[in-house]
């Protein structure tokens, strides 16, 4: 198992099932199976032919190609896909539930939920009437493009749908794995530190939008909003920022307007 973040393993569950073969991409590939050592006989040392094979392949090449496939599918379906990322406990699911309640009468929406374990989040989403597929990554610390491909096989999506992917709560690993989304949206809550963007710069750099959540709690905290914004812009000068509260609804209109603008651009 990974010493850094505990990722790895071969046991992701998608919609409660082990993925077998995706319609889109052929054999399952997001967890390379350990192949059996081929039976071979070592020739005497002086007759062994040794050579160097030039490879020059990026480690993310496979994921990036699968993400490209997802992205073409989303484009063909006129779908806007947003990848929500944050640390655990930032309020992503509450924010998503509130967002779905405000949007569900206006358009078709679906959700892909990523967590190490449990169906809890997908159940919270389904309670709003929106279809949701839960991916349990097991020991894995992030979603990857292949898991999304498999999840799409289980979702029936109308053209022009809006798809939210709620990534595993983790501010490190999901930054590097393109899922084919239009944008990563990072959620930072005011109960966390203002220096999170500096501590986890890859994620804030990869995101197009930062939602500063739980702003209803500001009167009770010493959180410095301007400092948090300055820190986010230090690692990503172009990041857009919306302050909101999923609990009292402040700023939600601005967030929904941002989604509408992205949908207009995508189409």
């Amino acid at each position: 198992m990974c010493t850094t973040c505990g990722c790895g393993g071969h046991d992701a569950l998608i919609g409660g099932k082990r993925p077998t073969r995706s319609k889109k991409e052929g054999p399952i590939s997001f967890r390379a199976p350990h192949s059996v050592v081929p039976h071979h006989h070592h020739a005497p040392a002086d007759t062994v032919q040794s050579r160097i094979v030039q490879v020059e392949k990026d480690l993310l090449n496979k994921n990036n190609n699968l993400a490209l496939g997802n992205r073409s599918y989303f484009a063909a379906q006129n779908m806007l896909v947003l990848n929500l990322v944050s640390s655990p406990g930032s309020g992503k699911t509450t924010l998503l539930v509130r967002t779905l309640e405000m949007l569900k009468d206006k358009q078709t929406i679906a959700v892909i939920e990523g967590d190490q374990q449990t169906e809890n989040d997908a159940e919270r989403i389904r309670a709003t009437g929106i279809p949701a597929i839960q991916i349990n990554t097991g020991k894995g610390c992030h979603l990857d493009a292949s898991m999304i491909g498999h999840a799409l096989d289980q979702l029936t999506l109308a053209k022009g749908s809006l798809l939210f992917i709620e990534n595993v709560g983790n501010l490190v690993c999901p930054a590097a794995f393109d899922l084919g989304e239009a944008a990563k949206v990072v959620v930072l809550s005011v109960t966390e530190g203002e220096d999170k963007p500096l501590k986890y710069p890859d994620m804030f750099s990869a995101a197009r939008l930062m939602l500063l959540n739980k702003c209803d709690l500001l009167p009770y905290l010493t959180f410095d909003v301007e400092l948090a914004i300055a820190n986010a812009r230090r690692v990503n000068p172009n990041i857009e920022i919306i302050q909101l509260s999923a609990t009292n609804g402040a700023g939600m209109d601005e967030w929904l307007n941002w989604i509408s603008r992205e949908q207009a651009t995508a189409n």
Binding site: M1, C2, T3, T4, C5, C7, G8, G9, S29, R31, A32, V55, K57, L59, L60, N61, K62, N63, G140, C141, H142, D144, V172, C173, A175, A176, F177, D202
Partner: peptide
């Protein structure tokens, strides 16, 4: 980060 996934990518390559 995710070195386990990346090591799996190395093996896949």
């Amino acid at each position: 980060m995710h070195e386990m996934s990346l090591a799996e990518s190395v093996l896949q390559i």
